[in-house]
Computed example of a mutant assay.
Amino acid sequence: MIAVIQRVSRASVTIDGNVNGEIRTGFLVLLGVTHLDTDEDIQWLGKKIVGLRVFNDSEGKMNLDLQAVEGDILLISQFTLHASTKKGNRPSFIEAAKPDIAIPLYEKMIRFLETETGKPIQTGQFGADMKVDLLNDGPVTIVIDSKNRV
């Protein structure tokens, strides 16, 4: 499971001209699920996301986590994070999980993050054509792969 986490001042996702999810201060998380992912990946990655200390403290140092700044999460599924570009110029997405595996894991991640934060998680819609708008704060962008824990 790969997450691209962006610290944002605001972010929203629009589907068919309608805002589906919207946050102010917090994280825009792009989540790529592979066919090898399990509940263990959800728990490990979810805790990493919630615990990331990348918000500025009173001295301007990245030292505060999401809870300390009362931040929110906008979680967007993005199978293209598992693109392979080893051959040619057309990416292969063979490592990305098919919907029958990816959707339940994506939904479990939503529930896990809601439990960890005590707040509703804003989302896109799995498989939809989404327009994501964000104001990256910093910019701060962090990539975490649950398969690279060591």
Rank of each mutant, 00 (worst) to 15 (best):
L81S: 04
L52V: 06
E40G: 04
M62N: 13
E70R: 12
R111W: 02
G51W: 05
K86H: 05
R90K: 14
E114W: 00
K48P: 06
G46D: 10
E59N: 15
G51S: 08
L105W: 07
V50C: 02
R111V: 15
V50R: 01
E40R: 12
K48T: 08
T115F: 12
V69H: 03
L36G: 04
I73S: 00
Q122L: 05
G51Q: 05
L105C: 04
Q78N: 08
A96I: 09
E107K: 13
T117N: 05
G88V: 02
G32R: 11
A97E: 05
Q67P: 01
L75C: 05
T80M: 13
E70H: 04
S92V: 11
T117I: 00
F55P: 02
L64V: 04
E107Y: 05
T38W: 11
T80Y: 09
I101Y: 10
D65F: 07
R90W: 07
D57N: 15
K98Q: 15
E40M: 01
F126H: 05
G60K: 11
H35I: 03
A96H: 08
V69T: 06
A83W: 02
V33C: 08
R111S: 15
L105R: 05
P91E: 03
V33W: 09
A96V: 04
G60H: 12
I94C: 13
T80C: 15
P104G: 11
L105N: 01
F79W: 06
G46E: 10
L52Q: 13
K119E: 09
L75K: 02
G32I: 05
Y106G: 11
T38C: 01
T38A: 08
M109Y: 04
T117C: 06
F112D: 08
L75M: 03
